[in-house]
């Protein structure tokens, strides 16, 4: 297969140049074939969302399945909005995702700062916990976690009077608070902060700055890439989360988009409507990805550094 061929300064003779050209043609063919494989379901989804079911099923036998031809309309989208409160699901998901990402950036970066630059009692223990739990998949603790949050105390307002109650099920907080602190984010911040020279801290200390000021005024402004990486790596799972809200949220107006879609799917909608729903909840992520694709790519690369 093709490999990296850095242009060399020495003169290439003719056969070598021909060989290289032939290899490039094969490379392009292979890359184009893979591009088709990765794109065709997405194109099919988008195009089908514009067609009535009868036409989707007849178009499936030809290339028309991927072409915007025939009876095109936004009817499926209108039906989705008529049948389920999809706008409400969207608002829920945006709210939950934003809070997880923003609060996560603050909490995890402060912890990373303390772990990488300060000496304090308990530092070793916290660092050990962070490293030990890096590989623990959420699925392993999901069941005991449901049990746990169903017992946690919460504040409810009954007729404007605050009172204690038990159980976090069917709330916003149960979808947000457990996911703010993240071992992997703390780990990335700790790694990144330790590359920023400590002499900066010392200079600021002498000028009388407290540690929080050093964090906020010196370290955070220098750690843009780390913040971008953590934001992206926490944004995707938060937006896409499914197993957790499936178990802890039954109330319709608290549902996020993914669980809302599974619920919609069970109403036996037309396929065109399903494709309209999936397009609706995929487009925001796709737009974010395409606008920040460079940051996405380097974030994923950074996540592999720990190996």
């Amino acid at each position: 297969m093709a490999t990296i061929t850095a242009p060399s300064s020495r003169q290439l003779d003719r056969t070598e140049r021909q060989q290289r050209r032939r290899r490039n043609v094969w490379s392009y063919l292979a890359m184009a074939l893979f591009a088709v494989i990765f794109l065709f379901p997405m194109v099919f989804m988008f195009i089908s969302s514009l067609k009535p079911d009868a036409q989707i099923l007849s178009d499936v036998r030809s290339l028309n399945a991927f072409l915007p031809v025939g009876d095109l309309s936004l009817d499926n989208y209108r039906d989705v909005f008529d049948r389920v409160p999809v706008a409400r699901f969207m608002i829920n998901s945006v709210l939950i995702t934003t809070l997880i990402v923003v609060l996560g950036l603050v909490v995890n970066s402060m912890c990373g700062f303390a772990l990488s630059r300060l000496e304090w009692k308990g530092r070793g223990a916290v660092l050990a916990v962070v490293i030990a739990t890096l590989i623990v998949p959420f699925e392993t603790i999901a069941i005991p976690m449901v049990y746990w949050v169903s017992k946690l105390p919460t504040l409810v307002f009954e007729g404007g009077v605050p009172k204690y109650d038990f159980g976090w099920l069917n709330t916003y907080q149960v979808q947000i608070i457990p996911f703010i602190a993240n071992a992997f984010s703390i780990f990335l911040f700790t790694q990144y902060f330790s590359t920023i020279p400590k002499s900066l801290d010392e200079a600021a200390r002498i000028d009388g700055a407290g540690w929080f000021t050093i964090y906020r005024k010196i370290v955070v402004p220098l750690a843009g890439p780390a913040f971008a990486t953590v934001a992206i790596l926490t944004f995707l799972p938060a937006w896409n989360s499914y197993l957790w809200p499936l178990m802890v949220v039954q109330e319709e107006n608290l549902r996020p988009v993914m669980v809302g879609m599974q619920y919609f799917f069970q109403l036996n909608p037309a396929w065109g409507e399903v494709m309209a729903y999936t397009t609706l909840i995929t487009l925001p992520v796709l737009i974010v990805f395409l606008s920040f694709q460079r940051a996405f790519v380097s974030s994923v690369a950074a996540s592999g550094v720990k190996g």
């Binding site: 402060m110 303390a114 304090w120 009692k121 916290v126 602190a181 540690w211 929080f212």
Partner: peptide, 21 residues
């Protein structure tokens, strides 16, 4: 001061990790 600040800044994440991990 360093010990106190370190503990205070790590506390929110450490408490949350304790509770939910």
């Amino acid at each position: 001061g360093e010990r106190r600040s370190g503990l205070a800044m790590a506390a929110p994440a450490a408490i949350l990790l304790g509770l939910f991990l």
